[in-house]
């Protein structure tokens, strides 16, 4: 019964987990989850701040210019409690980002970022 209770509590807890896009404020006002963006580049800087971390990612363009996107991730306190640490990603690390474009036209900000390495390992 104890095992069943533990499994039940786990399932109950999982059902209670909310998607990260609702983590703090109405992120939907800034980013459009219906308008995804995928970036391949290298980490420029990790900013470990509330309410959402930012990873600045250098993304080379076809014309040779490098654009630096600011990609917002999860809440640093919640991430810390899940075992994530700021130095999981370092400047110069190759990274693939999937996220939501900013509603503001021309913005280089990206929301709800998911970060994986080129070999498919999920970082955050």
């Amino acid at each position: 019964m104890t095992k069943i209770l533990k499994i039940s509590i786990l399932i109950s807890s999982l059902l209670c987990i909310s998607p990260p896009l609702f983590a703090h404020h109405s992120i939907a006002a800034e980013f459009d989850s219906e308008n995804p963006i995928r970036l391949m580049g290298t980490v420029n800087e990790v900013v470990w701040m509330n309410p959402h971390i930012s990873i600045f990612v250098d993304v080379p363009q076809d014309n040779g210019i490098i654009l630096t996107y600011e990609v917002q991730g999860g809440n640093p306190n919640s991430m810390y409690r899940r075992g994530a640490r700021k130095d999981d990603l370092k400047p110069g690390d190759p990274i693939i980002v999937e996220g939501a474009r900013a509603r503001k036209e021309g913005s280089l900000r990206v929301g709800q970022g998911n970060f994986t390495t080129p070999d498919g390992t999920e970082v955050w």
Binding site: E30, N50, Y80
Partner: peptide, 20 residues
């Protein structure tokens, strides 16, 4: 309980106009 400085990383969104 951890520190939670809300404006810390919302400031750039607000000053850039991305977050109104």
């Amino acid at each position: 309980i951890m520190e939670y400085s809300c404006m810390e990383n919302n400031l750039t969104g607000l000053t850039s106009g991305s977050l109104l």
